[in-house]
Design a protein around this nucleic acid. Structure first.
Length: 573
DNA sequence: GCCGTTTTCGGCCCGACTGTTTTCAGTCG
């Protein structure tokens, strides 16, 4: 059993304990343990299986939870969890995902109504039954109905780390088949979409058809949806993500990649272009209309070339001008992951991060960065133990004095933007720092005009160098807040304030389309991970994909600069 | 339930908003 699975069991149990109104601190211990285990570099199973090692070595894991982990490793669950699952339907956990309903409300609802699904909850609201319960009224019913809508819109889509991990597992599994030469992930994942609905894999080689058979026997298959000589589909894992695997002949490999990478509209444009040239394009290749002679198909670039175009990077294939740009020779040279020289937004234990300053710095250095910035929270974020002026200054001193050869560490802050647009920290404290990101973490439901004014106002602070996770969107969870993005981008450009491309796979909150708009207004950008743990630093790749979807080049970003150049840029008054 | 230690138990994260109240519980971040 993998750490992630153990962490899931513990986190779910914590949710159930919350519904059961158990002691809050005990619940927190379970949550803490879950987080620790998820990010722990060694497998729990290995530690538990080594005679002279103890799970209690791990901070946050004491005797109680160590025993629980042992039990989970043995049988997938544990006693206290089983008892909770007898008391509450397993779907109680699903109800917790509805924004606006917390554990107390769910416990109350489950006590009074025999419901177990989101559909039934919806009916309760529609029939105005919720208001029969204490402290629940019409407003809440409306709110829950809205939340259910949002919840439904997000189910069936998946965040990139899960999609990536699943795709890699299946790719490796299929690639290990004799006679399979190539296995590649296509689809929206290849285009770098922020979330994916399903996975498309293309397989080729003399035994490609055998790989389809093998795929249907993959250990994590929940349900086989179809299995033929050319294609197999299945739902994978408890999450039931649909995975389609297609076997194609070698000479069609590029055509299949092109066809199944999409996007749909890009492909329509491309096929129309082919027709105008007396050609026809499908997933098997590019052929002459008269006579059917094959023109291209083995590799993707050959297809574009035969259509009179340079190869177009997948991230651009959304039919938003990329074919015209390709034709005119104006495709941008998109930024690449290995051009990123530093990460400028991360947290430590000083506030709500899970690792120390030194641990974060060591990992950044390990990743080959030349520089980095520590940006913990400011005091308005009380739940994260945000820094006040005195702690900011003291912490900045520690950052500067830290011994970490090989990487330059800038002192920074992620400073809250208060409701009125003022910075959460006094100007003279901010002036002590090398780097200030301004972010919204509260009052996210302001009227658009008020939110716009708030953000415009914060741009007047001379200390602000970047706007952090500008739209506030949490993928599959929360919409971004409403404001006049163009106005903010225009002012940020004129003030020389960067827009952050937040690479956290739960955010990626500034879409490619918005990035393009901002770039047209003259904005520059920084890609940051907002890491709360060293492993989160590896999310940089998602930010780069998003930047590429925004047509950005290395020159549009500041963290592609070398350390000296970036330091000089920081110092510009 | 964990931690640290004062080795046997107390501290652990809290402010603001919302909707429902009529003084506050629940939720969120």
């Amino acid at each position: 059993m993998e750490n992630r699975e153990i962490a899931n069991v513990l986190a779910e149990t914590a949710d159930l304990m919350e519904i059961a109104a158990e002691d809050g601190f005990r619940i927190r211990s379970y949550r803490n343990a879950s987080g620790t285990i998820e990010g722990y570099p060694e497998r729990m199973a290995d530690i538990a299986g080594t005679p002279d090692r103890k799970l209690t070595e791990i901070p946050g894991i004491g005797k109680g939870i160590a025993a629980v982990i042992q039990e989970i490793l043995r049988r997938g669950s544990f006693d206290a969890r089983d008892k909770l699952l007898e008391k509450y339907p397993p779907t109680a956990l699903e109800l917790l995902k509805i924004q606006g309903l917390g554990p107390k409300s769910i416990a109350l609802i489950l006590e009074h109504f025999r419901i177990s699904t989101v559909d039934e909850l919806e009916r309760l609201c529609q029939e105005q039954k919720l208001r029969e319960l204490p402290r629940m009224g019409a407003k809440l019913e409306e709110k829950v109905l809205r939340s259910i809508e949002q919840y439904r819109a997000s189910t069936g889509r998946f965040l990139l780390p899960f999609a990536e991990k699943t795709a890699a597992e299946i790719r490796d599994y299929l690639a290990a088949t004799a006679g399979v030469e190539r296995v590649t992930v296509a689809g929206s994942f290849r285009r770098g979409r922020e979330t994916v609905g399903d996975l498309d894999l293309i397989v080729s080689g003399p035994e490609a058809a055998g790989a389809l058979e093998k795929f249907s026997k993959f250990a994590r298959v929940q349900q086989v949806l179809g299995l033929g000589p050319n294609k197999s589909s299945a739902l994978i894992g408890l999450e039931r993500i649909q995975v389609d695997v297609r076997a194609v002949p070698e000479e069609s490999y590029g055509a299949a990649m092109q066809y199944f990478t999409g996007g749909k509209d890009h492909n329509v444009q491309l096929r129309q272009r082919a027709l105008r040239m007396g050609l026809t394009l499908n997933e098997y290749g590019l052929f002459r209309l008269d006579g059917g002679e094959r023109v291209a198909g083995a590799d993707e670039a050959g297809i574009y070339q035969a259509l009179g175009l340079p190869w177009i990077p997948p991230e651009l294939r959304e039919n938003c001008g990329e074919i015209e740009a390709a034709e005119a020779g104006n495709l941008p040279v998109l930024v690449e992951l290995d051009q990123i020289r530093g990460d400028l937004h991360m947290h430590t234990r000083e506030t709500d991060g899970r690792a120390t300053l030194e641990e974060m710095a060591a990992e950044c250095r390990e990743m080959g960065y030349e520089y980095m910035a520590i940006t913990d929270h400011s005091k308005a974020l009380a739940m994260a133990n945000g820094l006040d002026e005195a702690r900011v200054i003291e912490f900045a001193r520690r950052v500067r004095e830290m011994e970490m050869p090989g990487i330059q560490v800038f002192s920074g802050i992620e400073c809250d933007i208060l409701r009125d647009g003022q910075m959460d920290l006094a100007g003279d404290a901010l002036a002590e720092l090398d780097w200030v990101i301004a972010s919204v973490h509260s009052h996210m439901n302001l009227e658009p005009a008020e939110m716009t004014d708030r953000l415009l106002r914060c741009l007047d602070s001379p200390h602000v160098r970047a706007l952090g996770h500008l739209t506030g969107r949490l993928l599959l969870h929360r919409e971004g807040y409403k404001f006049d993005f163009e106005a903010i981008a225009a002012k940020a450009a004129s003030k020389g304030v960067l827009l952050e491309i937040n690479a956290s796979p739960e955010r990626l909150d500034v879409s490619g389309a918005l990035l393009r708009m901002a770039r047209a207004k003259g904005c520059r950008f920084v890609i940051n991970t907002d890491a709360h743990h060293p492993k989160h630093l590896r999310s940089m790749k998602y930010g780069v994909m998003t930047a590429r979807r925004g047509w950005l080049t290395a020159a549009d970003l500041v963290n592609t600069m070398g350390a000296a150049e970036f330091a000089a840029w920081l110092k510009r008054g």
